[in-house]
Design a binder for these strands. Structure first.
Lengths: 235, 235
DNA sequence: GTCTATAGCTGGATAGAC
DNA sequence: GTCTATCCAGCTATAGAC
């Protein structure tokens, strides 16, 4: 039986390496989880895609859940670090730029791994999937990875927008997460509605549109919301 | 063995009815799918929650997938109809109100079923889950149910915002979907970041915040995006 | 129409040879 | 560390009594 060599990858210097079984498993499962979701992918599918044996997965990772967890922590840390790095370049005390803060938050999340040959984009999708799952496991993993940097950004936004009440800012942060995750998920909805004209998969395009949109939302004065008439009595 | 009567529901007139097995199955599965996702819930769990037999599910629905499909079509149509109804109340030719259009789109999606005793909120979550799944089946179901009304709203937005280019409008519509779905998913992320102060589950609160936020984003002049500097060369 | 029983698979995980 | 062979729990779906 021929072993799969489809997962070999070539580096910038032109040399070709055969990734370790462990690495091939992480790459293949990241891809598959992103595409089909956590529960929909069996480890048998994963080992077939990685060209390794069933037992190898358990040897290297112990369990399917542990595999997901290791993928996630490996990818999440660079994102959080890059966010903090970009944020630190912005002087918050002196005319902080809302747009720059938003870009520091969004760009690492959207672009991470886009310059590696295999599996890069997959993690972006995978993370978006996990973010909308109310399941406890995925939620805990996410919280551990991103709570700290998110807290710092909420703080930075408060400095950049001193006139916006904290509660309002938290709602808007939530809305930002929604637009970010939905863009990352690349669920294909807007492509089908616009015959492909609008494509969230084009990252630079997405960033160029999302930042002004969110900035305007963040800056809007809360008083304006009195124009909304409640059509049903709140319960 | 005692049959479960926990799913009985009482109507406004005070009478108590025992829903049919078919209805109990739909209610229970809607709830469970929303909470744990499509693949994570077995039909054994569903029938146990509904207090019926395993075979009853297949008798009434034929298959698990058909059950999901029936739940979805039953709930989606009222949402689309209510959207269109609210939209028709707005005179688009004469000073169309952006906020009213947004409310007509968002309110039915967020509140549908909130006035029934059981299972109402569940569908909101379920729909948000399906919306972020790239899986073909869920995508097709969603497209069939909502493509038409979404198209009408894109058109209405174009009328209300004649100075915004169509391509820009499509991006912003995509961003609106993201904030809407993430609010509907109620993934708990913002609650944990803010110690529960911000809660997307409070629908009227959510609407009061989301509409001004989105309206500001929709109205912002596209020229402003030149303030964003691309930090990496587009590929 | 409602139930019990079970067929027929596929899932994650492991034992033990090499 | 890598493989084959296998365990067995859990799944969807159906057959057939009542």
């Amino acid at each position: 039986m021929l072993k799969s060599s489809a997962l070999e990858t070539s580096l910038d210097d032109g040399s070709a390496i055969k990734p370790s079984a462990r690495q091939r498993l992480m790459d293949a499962s990241e891809q598959l989880f992103a595409e089909h979701g956590w529960n929909a992918v069996s480890i048998r599918t994963i080992v077939a895609a990685a060209g390794v044996n069933l037992a190898a997965l358990h040897y290297h990772f112990g369990s399917k859940e542990q595999l997901l967890s290791e993928i996630f922590t490996a990818r999440a840390k660079p994102i959080a670090l890059e966010r903090i790095r970009l944020l630190s370049e912005i002087d918050l005390d002196d005319a902080p730029s809302l747009e720059r803060i938003l870009e520091a938050f969004l760009r690492p999340a959207l672009t991470i791994g886009s310059d590696v040959r295999f599996g890069g984009r997959a993690f972006v999708k995978l993370r978006a999937r996990l973010a909308t799952e109310p399941e406890a496991v995925s939620r805990r993993i996410l919280a551990n990875a991103f709570d700290e940097s998110s807290g710092e950004f909420l703080h930075a936004l408060a400095r950049a927008l001193p006139e916006i009440p904290q509660a309002e800012l938290e709602w808007r942060f939530h809305f930002m997460l929604g637009t970010m995750f939905y863009t990352m998920a690349d669920a294909g909805r807007i492509q089908s509605l616009t015959n492909g004209r609008c494509d969230p998969g084009r990252v630079e395009d997405a960033l160029a549109h999302i930042i002004p949109f969110l900035a305007a939302g963040f800056r809007s004065k809360p008083e304006l919301k009195s124009t909304i008439r409640s059509r049903r009595r709140p319960k």
